[in-house]
Design a protein around this nucleic acid. Structure first.
Lengths: 232, 232
DNA sequence: AACGATAATATGCATGTACATAACGAGACT
DNA sequence: AGTCTCGTTATGTACATGCATATTATCGTT
């Protein structure tokens, strides 16, 4: 019987085990790729692949010539899934609904202007909408769109298609920022979300650009009880 | 002059450009690795590396034999940095402070028991602490530790070292969960964080295991104004 | 002692070849 | 028609080799 095949995944697993078991302490220099390849009986490229994955995950730090070290602070990186709300709701087994609350062209507040990096007070398209799950409010969306970057959006029937869904499908972005925070519900928002004024809302604010052209700023407010979960 | 070298990064960039420019539409099948390698004048492995990165980022979906498709919904993945609070504060230029508020052994509430997957009502070590930035409350930490998994923690002087820092350095975990949410401050928490009762707090709840042994459950509450930001 | 050129070294990347594996699809058989 | 098998095909992985590049260590000169 030939020896069990050594894949990069098995090297990955073994190195991970040594880190977790503290066989290799945080900060320690681990053997170089050539030596590990010899130890595991595989090619250097295989070891390299495994170590690269671990470095990407933040458990190792690698520098040319300096070698590979176990990360001092197991940099905890969590990858959040940021789904389109439509899919988020259906993934939970709910029926998605959508209602446009307001649509106007107006001057954005300072917060939006600065987030988008717009100096002049150009008017933007202001959209307010409600996402529903099984008829119940799921998230309130307050959005400002730069019509110069997305002129086609002006012709879309936003009563039927959410700006969210349309933008995701039709406007690629090259850069984006996400800010998560919490805030209390004001009277308007509380009424829309059918919660009490003063309730704690979970906020997700996204800003997106293509190149250096700002596309949209959006704040989604989730009623009390909403949770954003991820594995570490 | 020799032709410009074709690295996986340049292939990555060009494929990304074709996706963003909608030259390759969402859902479309893109040429196979061999053809792309011929087009770009590089080895198949180089194309493969580039496409793998894009698939990891969620922009492509790849299946053996079926080929590589542009993702229908550009799955937006955000990688959050979950720093140790100590470093988070110092990264902002603040001076870190820490105060232990309470330490006891007690039966955990149902929420903690179920999060940790503990059936029996074994007593856990209950720690409450405050993280400070320049003397001001930064985050309130409510933690339950399974002493069976971490007996050594009982001998640590938790007045001086935060359980957070000690655990990160001394107890590796194999699995963890992070839940972000919002809640209003109750009277106790408000007093500790020096905010008003009813203010919206940003909550981060973490649960960690080694193997199937639960280690700790912790909820960190951040006062109003706290933001968790990430690039997309 | 301070500084600068140079050699040594570990990772990073590209290539060609080979084989493994998953999945689609055509054709055979019931 | 249904379904089962098997060949085809595209991705996934492994390996040996070679060169590139960043960084450190060393040795020399001033």
């Amino acid at each position: 019987m030939p020896p069990a095949p050594v894949g990069w995944q098995s090297v990955h697993a073994e190195v991970l085990r040594r880190i977790r078991s503290r066989e290799w302490l945080p900060g320690a220099l681990i053997p170089n790729e050539t030596d590990l390849a010899a130890e595991f009986g595989c090619a250097r490229a295989t070891v390299s692949r495994a170590l690269r994955e671990l470095a990407d995950a933040g458990l190792l730090t690698r520098r040319r010539k300096a070698g590979t070290h176990v990360a001092l602070n197991p940099v905890r990186k969590a990858t959040l899934q940021i789904p389109v709300i439509h899919e988020e709701i259906e993934a939970r087994g709910g029926t998605y609904g959508y209602a446009l609350i307001g649509r106007e062209t107006a001057q954005p507040p300072l917060q939006v202007r600065s987030a988008l990096g717009l100096a002049a007070a150009d008017p933007l398209l202001h959209l307010r909408a409600l996402h529903l799950s099984d008829g119940a409010p799921y998230a309130y969306e307050d959005r400002w769109v730069n019509p110069q970057a997305v002129p086609a959006l002006l012709d879309v029937d936003l009563e039927r298609v959410s700006a969210n869904a349309w933008l995701v499908r039709n406007v690629p972005y090259t850069r984006g920022q996400l800010i998560l925070s919490a805030a209390t519900a004001d009277a308007d928002t509380a009424e829309i979300l059918r919660c009490a004024p003063g309730d704690a809302l979970f906020l997700a604010e996204r800003t997106t650009w293509t190149g250096d052209r700002p596309i949209t700023w959006v704040r989604q407010s989730y009623p009390p009880g909403h949770r954003l979960a991820t594995e570490l």
